[in-house]
Each structure stands twice: as structure tokens, then as C-alpha cells.
Design a protein around this nucleic acid. Structure first.
Lengths: 332, 332
DNA sequence: TAATTTTAAGCAAACGTTTGTTTAATTGGT
DNA sequence: ACCAATTAAACAAACGTTTGCTTAAAATTA
């Protein structure tokens, strides 16, 4: 079995208290020779601190937990990198647990995994909690912050892009290139995110003097399949010259499905994607996107955990990056 | 502050011991009315068990930790799903921590994060540990198992594909289609994995009466960039009609770079990829691949943790799945 | 009714740390 | 040489659980 502080104490001929202090590099309460003896004994026994025991007495932990929904849109790695870097800079550790995207029971289990042990804070990655699970989360006396998702309830701390702007700017990118018939694909219609993107999309159209058509929007869950299905629903006769897709994966779905339908991108159909992950540059042609600042989202998340009172809801900037999937239409 | 078992005991007018027993659903030592009182009190106080404290006394944990290298090849999600499902079936929780791919210090920190708290076992995802860090891992008295990576040292428990077979079958897929000049791209030359894939590749060539050429292999780290660089190094004048790429990402790299060079895939160049993640079907043309069984790898990993003694080294099956990137050459 | 068994609940120790307080030993000043 | 001040180390309590053991009460048996 693993060596404890007491084993070291015995071997070095000192008290556990002293061992604890030298191992924690406390500045006082022991002399240089004792310190050496203790270090030597610790090394010899291959001592590993039992952090759980330490956290129990100090009543404070330095791990932050990230709960991720396992949806197949892969911006999470960028957010996690942002979290990781910022956490490391503050001397914090990061653990990640996966929750099912919809299954409330899987969500609950994931939540309990982190709530039932001492964590310093909880970051929830594009996770839509059921009311019961939200209550569970709030019942734990732990700071938390939602990432890449926003709520109508303004009190829930969250960091995300301005979804209305996302929808607006994506649409505007196509409008500026002369498009008038523009679809919105694979954006879900019942989340805050989806509703605001839709609203932004419609505003952009109206501001350009185009009246939105119901059949131009094909809702979906941001997945590759949702993208394909949306494009399949449009078909070749929709008259659409451009579509904005709810995610990079969805955009690839419409891209591939368009190809299946015999539509060349961007010659016959322009696409602007939402997210701007590295996927955009892997695919041919490369996807023009309104890119979110995922790294910063993660970084802001851990800062929010460290100073929980200020700005409960934060917005990270977006930017449209032009690549190869929008064609400028000739003026007629 | 959070409610403890003692708070419940006080509220329900019983002892902490009794509370502990009813909350753990122990079968005896208390009566039905007491049980109800305790349940009610627990609910009222919004009690959350402090698992760390419990683990401290029971000296046993039910969380398994996964250490992931953050390389940009994304099969990890499949492995993790396999781990997650199998763990859940055994009532185990899963936490994930990211380690840098090469930075030994980041590796060490990640390792310490999991070693310094009570975990039931450790799974290491395609992680190449430095000798010091390996020693650190072995010093912890915790079962562990490497996944998707094998070692020359036969004592290290690991679950992976047979890399020699991977190299052999990938190459053979091209040979069967009539190819004779076949490259190997973005496989690293100093890991066990890379060396065995290379050996399999060369054996396949020799078995078909082709003598391998040094300039046909362009080593690399399995990344998208490595794939691009390899293809760039080949150029248009290499005479290669096919290349096997070290990973899906690498394959996409050679695919895109080939296109940049004016080479059509598969007309001018055939590609077979190694891994077979969903990426293969996202890209156009879809990548023919030798696919690994990542889900099973994860599942086998947790089983290995639960019964550590048997088969220290296991192999999961592979299969080649034909898609659109290998062209059958006309017989001359 | 007395003796015995069963059931219900409490007591107290233990897990591996941290840290405030106490005690002992050393140093320094006069 | 004595007292104060400093330094070094040990003591002991605490964190929130679990669980073996003990005790008290109730139920069963003869």
C-alpha cells in the first residue's frame, strides 16, 4: 500500500506535522537538517500525497471540472485548450467528464460525478440541462459557468458568442456578395442559441430588403446529418443561391449533399458556416465561416469561476473569415 | 456550506452512523421509520455526499481516469465512448485529463492530477511517456493500461491494433488494385507503432515482389500538416501511384496537397488511410481506410483494469473498408 | 415469567492530511 | 548568569465518511 505522511515521519524520526510542513514548503517551523531528512525519506518511500485527504481538511480544492456534451461538433477541444491554459496559469487542475447530449440520466450521473467531490468550480460546455439537473447543479455550493450557450434567464452565468450577431453577420456575408435567396440550415429552433441566430438571420434579410421565406429555414441539431438532411430538403429547385449552416459539421453536410445533388460549391451554391474550427480548412473547397473565439471562451470561463460575482453573462467576439465557399454574384 | 451527514443526524434525531447506513441502502441496522426520517432530512437539507471523504475511509474508489494526449487526431472520442459505456455498466465513473503530446512537464502534471487522488485505474490514450513519467505511473499503486499504443517492452499492459498488420493490409489494399509504386506518409519512425507499420508495409511490398525505395517513405507525426508535408516532399515526379497515410488527418493532408499539386484522387493518386474515423466519410472523395476498432479498445481497457492479471497485451481486430480513394489500375 | 434471540441504534476508531497551539530547546542581550 | 526572544518540533483537533463493536430494547421461545 502507498506510503503516508506518517510512514515518512516514522522513517525520518519526526512528527507528521513537520513532514506535512516541509513537503508543503512552508517557510517556518522546521530546520534545514530536518527538512533534508524528510525529503530523503519521502523520496525513498516513493511518497505520493493523497490530495483527497488534504482537500478534506483544507475545505478547498484546486481542480476545476468541465462537463462536456458529447455532440459530434468538435469545437470542444479548442475551448478545453483555453480552459487548460488559463487553469494552469492559476495553478489549477482540470478534469473532464462527458455527459450525454440529451439523456437526462446520463447528464445527472455526470453532474453527480463532479458535484460529489471537492471541485473548485464547474464549467458546462454547450450543455442544455433539464430543470431538475439545473437545480442539482445550483444545489451544490460550487461556482459554475455555462460555455458556448446562453439563456433567456439572465441570471445564469454564461460565456458565449452573441448569437443574434452570428446569424446576422453570416447572412450579411452572403447578402454582400449579392445573394437574395438565402437558406438557414441545421439550426435548432427551440434553444436560445437557435432562436437568436434565426432572428439575426431574418433581421439581416429584412435590412437588405428581402422578406424571409418559411421554406428557407430547415431546422436541425447542428450535426453532419442535420446538414445533409437540410440540403436534401432544399433539393435542386429551391432557388437558393446561398445557405448559412449551423455548424462546421452541418456545413460539410450541406456541402456533400449539394455535391450529391449535382450542385457545385460555390458556383451553384454558396455556403457560410458557423464556428470556424479547423474543419473549415480540411474540406474542399474551404468553408467561409463566421468564426467563434472558442479559446477565449474557455479562458473567460475559468476567470469567471475565480471571480464569480462580476458580469454573469459575457460575450466573446466573432469574426467572419472568408475562404472559398461564397461566390460573389454578378450584378444584374 | 454544504450539509453533512452529521447535520442530517441532528435533524433526524439519530446518529451519524445510522444516517450513513440508510443513505448507503445497507440492508440492516435500522428500522423503516428511522429510514424515512433520515431520507426526509437528507432531502430537506439538499445533502450531497462527500465522495472524497468516503473514499478516504473505504480505501477504494470507483472512478477510472483517462489521460489523453491532445494530438489533433480525433479517434479519442470513439475510445472514450467505449470506455464510458463499459465503465457505466460496471458502475464506474470516468474522468479525463489532457496531457501535452510531448511536453514531459505537462505529462507529469496530468499524471499527478490523477495519481494524487484515489482512482481505481488509469487508462492512457496513445500516450508516449518519458521514462521518468512511466516510473511515476508505476510507482502509484494503481492499475493502468495503455490504449492505442504498444511497446517493445512486453510487460506494459496495452491494448492496440496489430501495427504490423495495419501496415501490411493497408499496403496490400493498394497492391491488390495493381499498384507497384507505393508511398508511406506521416508515420513516425521512432515509436513502436511507426516501426511496425513500416515493417508491415515493407513486407507487403516484398511479398508482392516489389523492393521498397527509401524515398517512398516520408515520416511524420500523423497530423494533417505531416500529411501535407509528406505529399509536398513527394511532389509530382515521384512516380508513386498510391500512398498509405498514417492517420485519417494525415490522409486528408496528402489529399489536399495532392490537389494543390494538380493530382486528382484517385485518378492520379490512390490513398489508403489508417484509422477509419468518421472523418473518412466527411471528405471528398471518401477515404478508403484500414479501420481500427476504437470503441472496443476502450471497452477492453476498462475490462483490463478490472482484471489486471490476465493478457497484459491485447490486440483488437482491424478491417479494411473500401471507399473512394483507391483506383484499380488497368493490367498492362 | 425468565432466558434467549433478534432487531435497532449508538459509540468510537479509522482513513491521510493540515494547522493552531503548546512545549522544549537554542540564541542573544545585558 | 539570568531573562527574554526566537526557533524547532511535537501535540492534537479537525475534515466527512464508513464500519466493527457494544448496548439497549423488543420479540421470541420454553
Amino acid at each position: 500500500m502507498a506510503a503516508t505522511i506518517k510512514d515518512i515521519a516514522r522513517l525520518a524520526g519526526v512528527s507528521p506535522a513537520t513532514v506535512s510542513r516541509v513537503l508543503a514548503n512552508k517557510t517556518a517551523f522546521y530546520g534545514p537538517t530536518t527538512a533534508e531528512k524528510v525529503q530523503a525519506a519521502a523520496l525513498k518511500l516513493g511518497y505520493r500525497k493523497n490530495t483527497a485527504a488534504a482537500e478534506l481538511v483544507t475545505q478547498h480544492s484546486n481542480v476545476i471540472a468541465v462537463v462536456v456534451n458529447s455532440v459530434k461538433t468538435n469545437f470542444s477541444s479548442q475551448i478545453i485548450t483555453g480552459i487548460q491554459d488559463t487553469a494552469a496559469a492559476h495553478g489549477l487542475h482540470v478534469i473532464i467528464v462527458y455527459a450525454g447530449i440529451t439523456d437526462p440520466e446520463a447528464q445527472r450521473k455526470a453532474l453527480l460525478t463532479v458535484i460529489e467531490r471537492p471541485v473548485m468550480g464547474i464549467l458546462l460546455l454547450s450543455l442544455n440541462l433539464t430543470p431538475e439537473n439545473l437545480q442539482l447543479l445550483q444545489g451544490a455550493q460550487t461556482p459554475y459557468c455555462f460555455l458556448s450557450i446562453a439563456f433567456d434567464d439572465g441570471d445564469l452565468p454564461s460565456i458565449a458568442s452573441d448569437d443574434w450577431q452570428v446569424g446576422y453577420q453570416a447572412t450579411q456575408t452572403l447578402l454582400k456578395a449579392g445573394h437574395r435567396q438565402i437558406g438557414l440550415a441545421a439550426v435548432d429552433s427551440d434553444s436560445h442559441t437557435g432562436r437568436f441566430r434565426l432572428a439575426g438571420y431574418e433581421s439581416a434579410l429584412r435590412d437588405a430588403g428581402v422578406t424571409p421565406q418559411a421554406e428557407w429555414v430547415q431546422p436541425g441539431v447542428y450535426s453532419y446529418e442535420a446538414g445533409r438532411e437540410a440540403m436534401a430538403a432544399y433539393g435542386v429547385t429551391s432557388g437558393l443561391t446561398g445557405v448559412v449552416a449551423g455548424s462546421d459539421m452541418a456545413a460539410i453536410g450541406v456541402l456533400n449533399q449539394a455535391r450529391n445533388l449535382g450542385l457545385a460549391v460555390p458556383t451553384d451554391l454558396s455556403i457560410v458556416s458557423i464556428d470556424g474550427t479547423e474543419m473549415c480548412e480540411l474540406v474542399q473547397p474551404q468553408l467561409t465561416s463566421v468564426s467563434q473565439n472558442f479559446y477565449d471562451m474557455g479562458a473567460a470561463g475559468v476567470r469567471q469561476l475565480l471571480a464569480p460575482d462580476q458580469h454573469p453573462q459575457q460575450v466573446t467576439p466573432i469574426q467572419v473569415v472568408e475562404r472559398e465557399t461564397v461566390r460573389t454574384l454578378p450584378v444584374k
